[in-house]
Design a protein around this nucleic acid. Structure first.
Lengths: 253, 253
DNA sequence: CTAGTTCTGCGTATGGTCTACGCATAACAG
DNA sequence: CTGTTATGCGTAGACCATACGCAGAACTAG
């Protein structure tokens, strides 16, 4: 009769709960020789140095001077470790918008912050994300993004959708440029030669009669140039923000 | 003096070249018992039935009644097989826009076509894409998208950027909704209960003082509702197309 | 018709992955 | 001192991709 019904809903993995500061150490048993943050930091170090593919349980254990199976006392599975890696990989959120920023300036800053993180840690893009964000820092990013839209006429659901739209774009843009970088490393080509090589390849493959529009793009030299990736980024971001602005003005007017 | 210099640039994997209809069968040796398309179809069948994780070389071979290593006579590596799976998984492009469609209607149709494919074959989202598109049908999709923008004032580079923006959005939206679906299957929860459960979870975790904006979203009930995913999709797509429209009008006016 | 060449199918083996299980030990509670 | 509980981790199982090499089939040249 004392026990409350368990309304916890979906059960959180143990390591995530401890990331939120819940769950205290039981007083019995030998003292732990490692800690979850230490393991996650080691895994992040491996990923930073050699990419996500190099992150195996044994490699992370070696990094810590421990045995492979020791890690499983701290994380329930490799997937759990990956989730925690994403959390610390993103790092702390960029903070609330500056007082002088309107929503557009704020979101621009917010998008650039994520852009910068993903450029530095492109392995974040390779982590198979397996659900909506539940780690502290991920929700921190969301919070800061929402604050940028605080004064606007948009509904709460619309704010959320706008944020989703922008993170999605940032992730996508980062994925594309990192693919080019990784592809050039794999093929042993200069990164600046990657797009031109791609352009030549497509030109060799397609039949202008069956791919007229694509052929025109090639003739214009679009794929041959090694554009500044930041220009690409700004273009798309401005398009999206223009779209949001149109919505806001329609709602207001 | 006869041989031309090899200007082929980056060397295409053998199986991709044969997808373009280059490369003929050498006349000697035993007749092949399989074919690349048959292998790719079998792999797609496995992915459709049991997801991308079930696609292993041995599983595909079993599907064909062949030995594992026999496949390597046809595809150079598993990655190559994955690339071909993406090509046939997307299927033929939706075709050029209807004559009565303006650019916006055409791109809307184009986006919905990809949306439909990704909803049916969500494993396509899990394939680690390893470079810009080079398979026939992928370039076919690009061609059809470019044609939607044919009459507009946009430059060729801008058309390309707009297309990238839209596919990126479609992929991202599909990723999110498929994650919810997969998460609900993994947790054994009704799909319609997934978002409400997520909302309750976040509400339990966050401190309203530290996450005021997020807290407000929760109070508005946004995360508790099981929205029609199509509505989400339309919202984002309209925002992007509004942004493109703003650009076109600025260029024109 | 025969010999040589070349390609197919595939068995074997290597080195990697994650992780279930169980044991010895360490630290506390009573 | 004894029982309980948690830790570290060795072993082993079940997968995985794929390098290598051999037997035999199908063609060509003589």
């Amino acid at each position: 009769m004392a026990a409350k019904t368990d309304d916890s809903g979906p059960v959180l993995p143990a390591a995530i709960e401890s990331a939120w500061g819940l769950r205290e150490r039981p007083p019995k048993g030998p003292r732990p020789g490692m800690s979850v943050p230490a393991i996650v930091d080691a895994a992040v170090r491996v990923a930073d140095a050699d990419g996500l593919a190099a992150v195996s349980m044994s490699r992370v254990a070696k990094e810590l001077g421990a045995a492979t199976m020791a890690l499983y006392r701290y994380v329930g599975s490799k997937d759990e470790l990956l989730m925690l890696m994403v959390d610390t990989g993103y790092g702390p959120s960029p903070g609330p918008p500056a007082p002088e920023d309107d929503w557009r300036a704020g979101l621009t800053r917010w998008a650039w912050a994520e852009h910068k993180v993903l450029r530095q840690r492109s392995w974040l893009l390779h982590v198979p994300i397996s659900g909506p964000p539940i780690t502290p820092q991920q929700l921190g990013w969301m919070e800061d993004g929402l604050r940028c839209l605080d004064g606007t006429v948009l509904g709460e659901g619309e704010k959320m959708s706008v944020l989703l739209l922008i993170t999605g774009y940032v992730r996508n843009e980062a994925t594309l440029t990192s693919q080019i970088a990784e592809g050039s490393r794999a093929a042993g080509v200069e990164p600046s030669e990657m797009m031109p090589a791609y352009g030549r390849l497509v030109a060799r493959l397609i039949d202008p009669a069956r791919f007229p529009a694509l052929h025109r793009v090639l003739r214009a030299g679009v794929l041959y140039q090694d554009d500044d990736p930041d220009d690409e980024f700004v273009f798309g971001l401005d398009r999206i923000l223009d779209g949001v602005e149109a919505l806001i003005q329609r709602r207001a007017g």
